[in-house]
Each structure stands twice: as structure tokens, then as C-alpha cells.
Simulated scan of single mutants.
Amino acid sequence: MRVQGAIIGLYFYLIFPANIIGLWWAVGSPLVMDTNSICRKTRRLAGKQRAICRKEPEVVEEVAKGAKVALLECQYQFRTRKWNCTTQKRSLSKILRHDTREAAFVYAITAAGVVYAVTQACSMGRLLQCTCGNNLRDTATDGEWEWGGCGDNVEFGYQKSREFMDARRRKKRRGDVTTLVQLHNNEAGRQAVQRYMRKECKCHGLSGSCTLETCWLKMPVFREVGDRLKQKFDGGAKVISSNDGKHLIPEGETIKPPSREDLVYTEESPDFCKRNKKEGSLGTKGRSCDPNSMAVGGCDLLCCGRGFSRKQVTLHENCKCRFMWCCEVICDTCVNIKTETRCL
């Protein structure tokens, strides 16, 4: 339990906004979130994590950035769902204590975010220990384009994500289904970046002609990564441990084994309709919903059959703004009446 608590604490340490205080690590030590704080509790870090903290503090800074980007993406992807990846009242820490599909997504998107941030830092020259990606290929081209340019070094980002995110769990791998599940979902997140690199090219030639193209590999935009992992969440596979405790196998005999890109879970998700402090569910009471939609995010589904209320809200907003020479922007104030619809 201490190891699992430390992992949860590390995730909290990474993904919460910097102005939140009173975070809880393992048994409840209050902490202030900032990049340097991640490495202050070195006794709680595994070997690889400790080594990165000591030798590559600039990588830790990118790890923290990637985890924050991941949290924002999680909240975007689940903005219309009953569970919306909220960080209120430490609900996320309780979600991460169980191997549900929601926890699988958080682990995967965080590992992907770390790959993304570290790789991006390499390309922008913020990390001295890595260079551009090696996009050169042994295969010949047809003469119209060739590999070159400064590609994204996703291999380095992948490596650092694996070292930092997997280190503690790998110490307790044998026979522990939670370890296998979390390592699998971490890898699924990294695959959502690494396997979907895209080719970008630049033309060369006289007078704007494109007699030759130089091409390199770039990461997909992170929204595409989030979309892909959200699809994997919807099709997540429920698994159990194999007899030898070394592998994950589908719970159902007719279900195919999960691939490296699939998300896996062992526990059913709680009912997020109602508030349940123990499970980390805040319920959907007070959530904004769309009364005209029958899909996810519509009031019928989001309000769990409890109904909804409508309220008119008067907003005073800037409008008809114009630039006055020199140098002032003048706006009128417009009254905008909107109808808010919220779950009961």
C-alpha cells in the first residue's frame, strides 16, 4: 500500500496546477506544488527517478510540464462525461487507487504528456543531452524528397517517460496485477505518441519551385493523442492476471488479448451519478448540460434521470470594439442574457 500511495502521490505532485497547496503524498504530508518539490522527497523516489532528479533536473521540469498538459487534455476529453477528470477535493487521488478505466486513462495520458513535453524540449534546444531526431532512413527515395531537417527526437522522450513513470512500479512487478496494469497503460500512452509520428516536408528550388523536398518526422498534435486514448478508453479491456502472474489476459475467453496500444482495467467504475466521497465521485449535481442533446453531455444522461433546472443569467460583455488612433481600444458594453441549464 505504501508503494501504491507513493505512486498516487507522485501523479498528484505532477498533474496539479502550481498554485494548489495542501496536496497529499502517501500518508498525508501537506506539500506545495512546484517543479523543484518533485525531487525534494528523494527517499520516496525509485532509483531511476532519483538519478534523473540528481543529474537531469531540467528533464524533471519537462516531466512536470507534460503532466500538467496531460491533465488539461484529460479534462477536455471528459468535459461532457459524468466523470470529468476533476481535481476538486482530492477526488482524483481516490480514482487512482483503483484499477478502473478512468485510472487507466489518467496513467496513459500522463505518460504520453511526459513523452510529448520532453521530446518538444529536445527539438527547441532546452535540453542539452538530446539533439534532433535521427530521421534518416536506409531505404532509397524516388529522388523527389530526402530525409533531413530537425525531426522530433521521440526516442529520447519515450526513454525519459519510461524511466520516470515506470521506475517505482518495476520494483514490484512480479505477481502484482496492479503493477502490470499500470505499466501496460503507461506504455499505451507512450505508444499513442511514438507510433503516430507524421512526416513534414519543406520544398527547395529556384523561384519557389519544389524540385526537392527535405522531410522529417514530427509528433502528432497532442489533441490527436488525447482523442486516440479516449477511443481506447471507450474500448478498454477488462483483464485478469495469468496463472504465473507475469501477464495480463482478457477476463472473457472470447475477447482477444489487448495490444500495447489498448487500455486495460481490472475493476468496474463506480457510479459517478451520485456523490461518493470514498470512491472519489463528486456526482453530477450542478453540472451544466445540454437539454437538446440525447448524446453524452445531454441533460438526460448527465443528470442521471434527476432532471435539470433552467436559469437566466445576465452577462455584461465587451462588444463592438474598435481601435482608436493612437493607441487605444474602445469597446461598448453589451448585455447578453443566457440560459443556464444545470443538473438537479
Rank of each mutant, 00 (worst) to 15 (best):
Q4F: 13
Y13T: 09
L14R: 00
I15A: 00
I15K: 01
N19E: 13
I21H: 09
G22A: 15
L23Y: 00
W25K: 08
V27E: 14
V27S: 06
S29E: 15
S29G: 10
S37N: 08
S37I: 05
I38S: 00
R40M: 01
A46T: 03
R54I: 02
E56D: 08
V60I: 15
K65Q: 06
L72Y: 09
E73V: 13
F78S: 13
N84C: 12
K89V: 06
S93Q: 11
I95A: 07
T100K: 11
A103L: 04
Q120M: 10
C122I: 01
R126Q: 09
L128P: 00
L128K: 12
T131N: 12
C132W: 03
N135P: 00
D138P: 01
T139R: 00
E144Q: 14
W145P: 08
E146G: 14
D152E: 12
F156C: 04
F156E: 02
Y158H: 08
Y158G: 05
D166T: 05
A167I: 02
L180H: 02
Q182N: 12
H184N: 06
N185V: 07
A192K: 03
S207M: 12
W216D: 09
G235L: 02
A237R: 13
D244A: 14
G245F: 14
K246E: 02
G252S: 10
G252H: 04
T254N: 09
I255W: 01
K256M: 11
P257E: 15
P257T: 15
L263C: 04
E267V: 01
E268P: 10
S269R: 08
D271A: 13
C273R: 00
K277R: 03
K278T: 11
L282R: 10
G283V: 10
D300A: 00
C303V: 13
R306E: 14
G307E: 11
Q312G: 05
C319A: 04
K320Y: 12
M324H: 14
C326T: 04
C327S: 02
C331T: 04
T339I: 02
T339D: 07
R342K: 13
R342P: 08
C343F: 01
L344K: 13
